[in-house]
Amino acid sequence: MQLQQLAYFVAVAEARHFTQAAERMRVAQPSLSKQIKALEADLGAPLFSRARGNVTLTPAGEALLPLARRILADADTARQEVAQLAGLRRGRVRLGATPSLCAGLMADALARFHRAYPGIELLVEEGGSRDLVRALARGQLDLSLIIMPLQSDDPSLVTEEILRENLVVAAPSHERPKGPYMEIEALRGRQMVMFRRGYDLREATLTACRQAGFEPRFSVQGGEMDAVLRFVEAGLGVAVVPSMVLDGRPGLSGTPLAPPGLSRTIALAQRKDVEPTRAAQAFRETLLSFVVEAGHEGTLPQGVDLIAELPWTDRPPGEAF
């Protein structure tokens, strides 16, 4: 089994077409087909069904696909790590974060890291926690900021809880309630703007409403963070959002739900079975230092608090790996 064969296999599995996969891999189609056949012979099972011109994965192919993706991702990570150990002043960190964290916490931490390590390439993937956890497990990300608790524990990941953030009810500023809190019952029968499926905030809102004994009414649903906030500004309804996303939006007000309210835990996740690259380790240290410093100085976004005293990095910013 060769890495090139696995790369060809993944390309065909994703394209569901041999010619398109060959074009993507920049190889002649007969050569690609030959390597796939060699892989099938080595494994002792067909990987694709080619009935009536349709290319589909066999059960063996379905089983191999996630493993092949992980092997290829790990091989790429190994190349990056060896390049760093060889003394090259460059590398790569693949980071994931939810949309609200990308716009807030992650942006400031990335800026600090880039100033300290300008030669490191930063790749950021934005998505819901479940999507990010899948990307981590496949080896497509090095680190990710996710929301806890996960819908299901993944034994291949290790998580480090760092922050707790309050969720608030966002409404147009002119509709600000009189009191400091809003009862969850106040959302019964009220028009709400809802995130697309897969968002952690969607599940948190649905769970809170159902525990209070009612189903929320949606005026519109399916948006990303920026779209949801704009819909609320336009008067389409209210939405349950992280408190930090309202910074710099004077057209919106955020009201916490009555105690115990709603909150979410922000954690840093990585794979348990793979040692992070030096570049990824440096970013983790930078992020934790930034979080602790902001917590001590009171500059964390409103409604965001440190969970516990996190360790400071011993490495001075900008020190070579």
Score class of each variant (00 low, 15 high):
Pro155Gly: 03
Gly87Asn: 03
Phe9Asn: 11
Gln151His: 12
Gln2Tyr: 07
Leu3Gln: 12
Val220Tyr: 08
Thr265Lys: 01
Phe218Thr: 12
Arg271Thr: 11
Leu101Lys: 03
Met148Lys: 13
Glu185Ile: 04
Pro46Phe: 01
Gly91Leu: 05
Glu293Asp: 14
Tyr8Asp: 14
Val232Gly: 04
Leu287Ile: 11
Ala171Glu: 09
Leu136Lys: 10
Phe321Glu: 10
Ser152Val: 12
Leu236Cys: 02
Thr255Lys: 02
Ser173Asp: 07
Gly213Gln: 04
His174Leu: 13
Leu123His: 14
Ile71Ala: 15
Leu95Met: 13
Gly213Glu: 07
Pro316Met: 13
Glu121Phe: 10
Leu167Asn: 02
Leu229Ser: 06
Arg130Thr: 14
Glu309Leu: 06
Ser152Tyr: 04
Leu39Gly: 06
Val82Phe: 12
Gly87Ala: 02
Gln191Cys: 08
Ala170His: 11
Val304Lys: 04
Leu47Pro: 08
Phe321Ile: 12
Arg315Cys: 08
Gly87Asp: 03
Ala60Ile: 03
Gly298Arg: 14
Ser129Met: 08
Cys102Leu: 06
Gln270Pro: 03
Lys178Asp: 13
Arg24Gln: 15
Pro59Thr: 09
Leu47Asn: 05
Val93Pro: 04
Arg217Asp: 11
Asp42Gly: 12
Arg94Phe: 02
Leu187Cys: 04
Leu65Lys: 10
Ser156Leu: 14
Leu143Pro: 01
Gln35Leu: 12
Leu72Cys: 10
Leu287Gln: 13
His17Gln: 02
Leu39Cys: 05
Arg16Ser: 13
Gly222Val: 10
Gly53Asp: 02
Asp142Val: 01
Asp226Met: 12
Thr277Glu: 00
Glu319Cys: 05
Pro66Asn: 01
Gln191Ala: 15
Ala103Leu: 14
Leu136Phe: 09
Ala107Asp: 07
Thr299His: 04
Met225Tyr: 00
Asp42Tyr: 13
Leu65Asn: 04
Val12Thr: 01
His114Gln: 15
Gly179His: 13
Arg264Val: 07
Glu165Ser: 04
Gly251Ile: 06
Val240Ser: 01
Leu150Gly: 00
Gly223Cys: 01
Leu136Cys: 12
Thr19Tyr: 01
Arg26Leu: 11
Gly53Trp: 00
Thr277Gly: 04
Leu132His: 04
Gln140Tyr: 01
Ser243Lys: 00
Asp74Glu: 14
Val274Ala: 08
Val124Pro: 08
Arg52Gln: 10
Gln211Val: 11
Ala170Trp: 08
Gly298Ala: 13
Ser31Phe: 03
Lys178Cys: 11
Thr277Trp: 00
Thr159Ala: 12
Leu246Met: 03
Leu143Lys: 00
Phe214Val: 11
Leu306Pro: 07
Ala21Arg: 00
Ala97Asp: 03
Ser152Leu: 06
Ala267Leu: 01
Ile146Tyr: 04
Leu157Trp: 05
Thr205Trp: 01
Arg92Tyr: 00
Leu122Met: 10
Gln20His: 10
Leu64Cys: 13
Leu72Tyr: 11
Val10Cys: 10
Val232Lys: 05
Pro46Tyr: 00
Lys178Gln: 15
Asp200Ser: 15
Pro216Gly: 00
Thr98Leu: 02
Gln29Lys: 12
